[in-house]
């Protein structure tokens, strides 16, 4: 909040946290990232009971409370559809780096073909007038992959013949 004119400067102690952490991603995510790194493939998880396909892969079906294992993982095509979109156009500190997140960037809720759940990711379009709900998109893979989400830096807008 901005201070009013004439108001005394408030004594502030400034600091920056820099906390390292280790996060256990689970065995399904291990397979997901292995397949992504080695074979440029995208895997989701399919509930053995109701057949709901989760992408990102989840270990438990939210509807049936059934556990999904490695054998329930299914390959999904790298194409999907925008369900919602925005263009982030405001400055903020990215807590992953401690620096400003570059903006503007396209940001979308998208659904991969064959998946029943959604995921949020970057989209390579910063003009919101060029995006629409239902827009087709395709995952872009990095050539030198490391086995993390950075291997799919963004989804690109595609045109498809009907």
């Amino acid at each position: 909040m901005s201070r009013k004119k004439g108001q005394e400067k408030i004594f502030e102690i400034k600091w920056k946290t820099d906390l390292p952490y280790r996060y256990s991603i689970g065995k399904l995510a291990v397979k997901f990232f292995e397949e992504l790194k080695k074979n440029k493939k995208i895997y989701g998880s399919k509930c053995p009971k109701c057949g709901k396909v989760n992408f990102p892969p989840r270990a438990v079906c939210a509807d049936c409370f059934v556990e999904m294992t490695l054998s329930d993982m299914v390959e999904l095509p790298p194409k999907g559809t925008l369900e919602g979109f925005t263009v982030v156009n405001y400055p903020f500190v990215d807590p992953q780096t401690g620096g400003m997140r570059p903006f503007p960037y396209g940001y979308a809720l998208l659904k991969l073909d064959g998946a029943d759940t959604y995921t949020m990711h970057f989209v390579n379009e910063t003009d919101y007038t060029k995006l629409k709900v239902g827009q087709r998109v395709e995952a872009v893979f990095k050539e030198e992959r490391e086995g993390n989400m950075g291997d799919i830096p963004y989804f690109k807008v595609i045109k498809e013949e009907e």
């Binding site: 996060y23 919602g84 925005t86 997140r101 979308a108 949020m120």
Partner: peptide
């Protein structure tokens, strides 16, 4: 940290998605 933090823009990004889907 794995799936959401890289692209998440705080609360406003998802709220913008929701507003767009609602108006659409």
């Amino acid at each position: 940290p794995v799936w959401e933090r890289p692209s998440l823009a705080g609360a406003l990004g998802p709220l913008a998605l929701m507003a767009g889907m609602y108006s659409a």
